[in-house]
Write a protein that binds this DNA or RNA. Structure first.
Length: 263
DNA sequence: ATGGTGGCGCGGCCA
């Protein structure tokens, strides 16, 4: 039976809640990882999410950041902090859903390569990578998804020359992401033929979406046991076309899960 | 054009 796992940076769940509820009703994902909810936990719209038929776990803060995992099946073993990394910013949320470990990341943006925020980004990625290295010792199905704020390769950038060595594209950021994939975590989008200039984020400014001046920075990574069962990964640009959209589009991966004994 | 737009929250930060 197919399983749909999705990620969406909503840039304020308060503003985007109607779009999220519509999207859940239409797409019926089994898991939806949200980033930039920008809500404290006491303001999380739990009742609306429950009414839509989803469980929710979340780790929020005011104004910035905030992550959540919505799921058809209940989530347990919830982890809200990057292990061994002191971080007041709510960017990490892990939970187990129906036997699958789900790691939802809102990776630090980094602002500029010479900034303190960039150093924080690299330190954050290193700490997350160490946690993933531990998880990858297990054969349990593992999906690592979210807003990575890194375009993996030049093919994920509308104008690679203009973006070279800038944040989201710098060598150190791509190297940090390569450490994730080096653990055996596969970028599921690239398991399949895709249109050229496929992006998941477009700046609000300069009519970037209309001109398709974007980057692919929202990713769904899967460990070997799960990647072997991946049947599709697509970017849904539909919500980006709506009135008052997020600057990110949802990304959806499908898996044809077979029984533990094999296909 | 070193800008542009959007969210939060009401001045300025962040993306």
């Amino acid at each position: 039976m197919p399983v749909k796992i999705a990620t969406w940076n909503v840039n304020s769940l308060k503003v985007r809640l109607p779009q999220v509820l519509d999207w859940l009703a239409t797409e019926e994902p089994d898991v939806l990882a949200l980033q930039e909810t920008k809500l404290t936990d006491d303001n999380f719209p739990e009742l609306d999410i429950q009414a839509a038929g989803y469980h929710a776990v979340y780790s929020g803060q005011k104004t910035y950041n905030g992550v959540a995992i919505l799921s058809r099946q209940p989530a347990d073993a919830v982890l809200r902090d990057v292990p061994d990394f002191d971080d007041p910013q709510r960017r990490f949320l892990a939970a187990t859903v129906a036997g699958m470990r789900v790691i939802n990341l809102y990776v630090v943006n980094g602002q500029a390569v010479d900034s303190d925020k960039y150093a924080y980004k690299l330190a954050w990625l290193k700490a997350v990578g160490e946690h993933l290295a531990n998880l990858c010792r297990s054969s349990m199905p593992l999906v690592v998804l979210g807003d990575f704020n890194i375009a993996p390769k030049d093919e994920d950038v509308h104008d690679p020359a203009a973006w070279r060595d800038r944040i989201l594209c710098s060598k150190a950021e791509r190297s940090a992401l390569a450490k994730f994939t080096g653990l055996g975590l596969t970028d599921t989008f690239r398991l399949f033929p895709q249109a050229e200039k496929s992006f998941s984020w477009w700046d609000y400014r300069a009519a970037a979406f209309r001109r398709n001046l974007g980057l692919r920075i929202d990713l769904i990574l899967a460990n070997p046991s799960l990647a072997a069962q991946c049947t599709a990964c697509v970017i849904d640009t539909g919500p980006r076309k709506l009135e008052r959209p997020s600057d990110h589009a949802p990304v959806v991966a499908e898996f044809e899960l077979w029984e533990r004994n094999g296909p």
